[in-house]
Design a protein around this nucleic acid. Structure first.
Lengths: 198, 198
DNA sequence: ATCGAACTGGTACGACCGTACAGCTTGGTT
DNA sequence: AACCAAGCTGTACGGTCGTACCAGTTCGAT
């Protein structure tokens, strides 16, 4: 076992290309689409490179998950940071929440792949800590969003659960309206919370 | 193509055994565990029987999903029907809701398989109408449950979404407490709705 | 008794999978 | 120039998969 740590610049670039390819597959078609061969083909490298740089498929999957998480956290963080502190309507607040939680995933296929990753945790334990950490950080960002929208009291856990659950049902429904359904559900909940608080 | 409609009693029994085996696999280990070979092995019939009675794997999967849906609806319906009409606390109401929604699935593996079926809809379109119909009927049962618990105003869609979303997060968490977390979340929401209504 | 349809089941094909490994190339050191 | 470890890759092994095929068997209707 020489060194799968990419000691060479070329090696590092290759490893990076593999992770990027795996991340693209994972985001577009879910965990089942991430195979050694598919990743190698997508990255334009020979099959054996995948086993050279990664101990096993789970390692590759974990690296891809981390990559996606990093990108997603960076984007979400920038979004939140750019959000001026000002009281906002339930509708606008809901839209901001969904934006931070789901990123730029809009169509059903992307959202499907997004949630498949969560359930894949059950079959690939290596993914669990990565996704759990990401979730925690996103939750923290959401707390910030609510504060910046003048709604510090709202329960983030419930709001996140409502988004997840609504998307799940909407994916079952099959029209492409999952995201806006989630936004509407959050808006309704926020309106109710406001009634309670006010 | 002779007749996969099981014209003979023995044939019908065999077809039934196959569906039962597929349903068991589906409920225990998710859609990916339902393969021709696994079903045949579980049912104790030769491999070729699976292709004789079912046009393809999707047909088998759809039949298994229907079987599970029928059993689950029967059990949930009996549960609701046996529920006396009387005002109940948020905690008891939440427990009843979760019982009807999740059935007897308690540990994480069963719940994982339960929700994997929903997402499998994205890859196996044949499952969509079956699961959608089941969801609608369960929703109707939940409306009944809420009425029988003296809480007619509660929003079923939101409550279901909260259960689904909470379970999803809890599965990511990985302790075995998914179900009780969902119950707690529903209880909290019911309590809040009661505040609004009262 | 015979015939044809329903049914049975052993087997095979081609595809994809994760992974291992033996041998090639490469680049830096002596 | 010689060398050697590290980097790299073609290829193959053993497995599971969906599906097709076809020679056999059963069995009720004629």
């Amino acid at each position: 076992m020489p060194g799968p740590d990419a000691a060479t610049p070329r090696g590092a670039a290759r490893r990076d290309a593999l992770v990027a390819a795996a991340a693209a597959l994972l985001a577009a078609a879910g965990p089942d689409a991430v195979s050694h061969r598919a990743v190698a083909r997508t990255a334009g490298v020979p099959l054996a490179a995948t086993t050279y740089y990664f101990a096993g498929l789970d390692d590759l999957l974990a690296a891809a998950t981390e990559r996606i998480a990093a990108e997603e956290l960076a984007a979400a963080g920038a979004l939140v940071h750019a959000l001026p502190r000002r009281r906002r309507s339930p509708a606008v607040t809901a839209a901001a929440l969904v934006e931070v939680l789901l990123g730029r995933r809009r169509d059903d296929a992307e959202l499907l792949a997004f949630y498949e990753r969560f359930l894949a945790t059950g079959r690939h334990p290596a993914l669990r800590p990565v996704l759990r950490g990401t979730r925690d950080r996103v939750d923290a960002l959401l707390v910030d969003v609510l504060q910046r929208c003048g709604r510090p009291g709202a329960d983030v856990a419930t709001l996140v659960a409502v988004v997840d659950g609504t998307i799940l049902s909407a994916l079952l429904e099959g029209d492409g309206r999952a995201r806006e359904r989630a936004r509407d559900a959050v808006e309704t909940l926020l309106r109710r919370e406001a009634l309670l608080a006010g």
